[in-house]
């Protein structure tokens, strides 16, 4: 009788569901590259392997990120259907790097929810700051009316060493010069700090100057102490009426 009870106990024991682990659902989260320029445009390739017995209607994988943007994603989240590739059921997504430096966390999880817990995989990507090396200013027009009768939109693109966008947060200074002296015009709607697009902008109105007077518009990148650096660009507007 004791043996029978032991056998039944053993059967009860072995009939227990084994503890579910994340690798039983998804595994092998790959992020390539895991170090990227924080230029807002570099691509990060993300893939994860789904359990090879996953049902066809249970193959959606949700990728989330704390930085950058999923291509075709929304709000830092994208749902991808895994497909059978090279003997594995793979879910893939592409992420554009953030414009800000820092460490971003990418998470993959099965869309099929479980009642007993969340089973997801995470990986990090280091986004390195892209220092500005070049700034290029583009006016909306090279002619401008005197005495603030017209305005010119000025946009400056800041790029890094590899001609990619510089990380956001670069601060610039807009100046107008009539010869070596300030021209006395006015800048409005100044966006002096670069955003995700790595651009700065301002709208400029010229003062009462005679027609044909050249006005030099200069934009200079400031360092963290708001001191002008050598990175700058300039363009000349001419009073045309």
């Amino acid at each position: 009788m004791r043996k029978i009870l032991c056998i039944i106990s053993l059967l009860v024991f072995i009939s227990c569901q084994k503890d579910l682990k994340t690798k039983d659902i998804i595994s092998d989260l790959k992020v390539t590259p895991n170090v990227v320029d924080a230029d807002g445009s570099s691509l990060v390739s993300v893939s994860v392997v789904l359990n090879d017995r996953a049902a066809t209607d249970k193959r959606n994988v949700v990728f989330t990120t704390t930085g950058g943007n999923w291509i075709d994603g929304k709000n830092g989240k994208i749902t991808v259907t895994a497909t059978y590739q090279d003997g594995e059921i793979l879910a893939k997504a592409n992420l554009t790097a953030p414009a800000s430096a820092g460490i971003i966390t990418i998470t993959a999880a099965s869309e099929s929810t479980t009642l007993n817990g969340d089973y997801n995989l995470s990986a990090t990507v280091t986004a390195n700051k892209v220092e500005p090396t070049v700034i290029k200013l583009e006016p909306s027009s090279f002619g401008i009316g005197a005495n603030f009768t017209t305005e010119d939109t000025l946009v400056a693109k800041i790029t890094g060493l590899n001609n990619n966008n510089a990380s956001k947060g670069v601060t610039v200074l807009f100046e107008d010069l009539n010869g070596n002296n300030p021209a006395g015009g006015r800048f409005r709607a100044v966006q002096a700090t670069s955003g995700a697009g790595s651009t700065v902008s301002a709208i400029y109105g010229a003062p009462a100057l005679s027609i044909g007077t050249p006005i030099t518009i200069r934009v200079t990148v400031l360092d963290k102490n708001s001191v002008k650096t050598t990175i700058s660009d300039a363009t000349t507007l001419t009073i045309n009426k």
């Binding site: 029978i4 056998i7 039944i8 059967l11 009860v12 072995i14 009939s15 569901q17 579910l20 039983d24 659902i25 789904l50 359990n51 017995r53 996953a54 049902a55 209607d57 249970k58 193959r59 099965s110 099929s112 929810t113 479980t114 007993n116």
Partner: peptide, 27 residues
């Protein structure tokens, strides 16, 4: 009688819908 029953059971894995064979006790 007491012994082992061979039947199929749903997996606790949310991505697997196939019922796998398992051994459970019976009386």
């Amino acid at each position: 009688t007491a012994g082992a029953a061979f039947l199929r059971r749903a997996s606790n894995n949310p991505v697997i819908t196939d019922k796998g064979v398992f051994v459970g006790p019976f009386v």
